[in-house]
């Protein structure tokens, strides 16, 4: 599938980014300020897009001929990040697989291995042959927490509500809300073990834009977990947050998770680091931060 290519031998990881929209440009901005990672190709469609102008200002090579650009210098690329659309990723992926490149898919294509950095530790340690899918912003934020809860108590039902600022939700997402919901629901079920799941996306047009927030409701069977288990859940959720903040420093609990009847409610706020997209767009930042983290992590302990 992915040939024999591991992550490149050089410590400097060479990255090509497909898609010069907000997500592609935010990842580029993060790479530009990082050591050990270099963007060798920023591949888009529109010469005058803000992302392309940003790349030009940072002297990053920009191309407009899609995958054929990659083929020209495939030997000097370690990673391809696809920040285009699910449709485009499905069309491009077979060729990327033939070229044996590591791929991080930021679209909800459903291809590749679902990836959550705090849970899929065996994927992180694979150190090569990656084709990972970052699912959705809501799934990225929810998964480590629902996995933490589900590891301690049996969850009967889990619900994840993403509150997003209208400004941060681009045209592709707006016509793909169905895919957002179904991909997020699959992730909730896969990582929490819950029998029933629900994902909801709320878009808020307020100015100034609201920071990204995810609310989780977990319901347990019967009267819910014992007092001891509740303490354990609270403790482990705090630990998960602490670990997550190493990847997304602007993530926080506006208030501590709490039990009400047989529900647990967890509110998670995600402020981005404000690289290309504004800080309130935590929904985009969680994806770009996770992608960069994986690339950097893969070169450690070699």
């Amino acid at each position: 599938m992915h040939g024999n290519s591991g992550v490149g031998m050089s410590v400097n990881q060479k990255v090509a980014i497909f898609g010069t929209g907000k997500i592609g440009a935010d990842l580029l901005a993060k790479i530009v300020r990082s050591t050990g990672v270099e963007c060798v190709a920023f591949i888009g469609r529109r010469v005058d897009s803000p992302g392309v102008q940003f790349a030009n200002s940072k002297k990053v090579p920009v191309f407009f001929n899609g995958i054929s650009e990659i083929e020209k210098f495939k030997d000097s690329i370690d990673w391809v990040i696809d920040a285009t659309s699910a449709k485009s990723h499905i069309a491009t992926m077979p060729r990327l697989a033939e070229l044996g490149l590591n791929v991080i898919d930021m679209t909800p294509s459903g291809l590749g291995d679902p990836f959550s950095p705090l849970v899929d530790t065996e994927l992180v340690s694979r150190k090569g042959n990656y084709h990972v899918n970052l699912m959705t912003c809501g799934a990225q934020v929810s998964v480590p927490f629902v996995h933490t809860i589900g590891s301690i108590a049996e969850i009967e039902y889990i619900e994840s509500i993403a509150n997003l600022s209208s400004e941060s939700v681009g045209p592709a997402t707006r016509i793909n809300i169905d895919e957002y919901i179904s991909t997020t629901e699959k992730a909730l079920a896969l990582y929490s073990g819950a029998k029933r799941v629900k994902a909801i996306m709320i878009i808020n047009p307020a100015i100034p834009p609201i920071p990204m927030k995810v609310t989780l409701f977990a319901r347990f069977a019967g009267a819910g977990p014992s007092q001891l288990m509740r303490s354990k859940i609270a403790e482990n959720l705090n630990q998960t947050l602490e670990n997550f903040r190493k990847i997304v420093p602007g993530m926080s609990f506006p208030h501590a998770p709490y039990f009400e009847e047989n529900y647990l409610k967890v509110d998670i706020q995600v402020m981005g680091s404000g690289d290309f997209v504004p800080t309130h767009s935590g929904n985009l930042d969680v994806l770009t931060s996770t992608a960069l983290w994986l690339i950097r992590q893969s070169t450690k302990d070699r």
Partner: peptide, 17 residues
């Protein structure tokens, strides 16, 4: 003051708190 939309019921508790 928050320009809330229908479906942001979860914000009510946060503000009241």
């Amino acid at each position: 003051g928050l320009d809330l939309v229908a479906g942001q019921e979860d914000q009510i508790e946060s503000v009241a708190r």
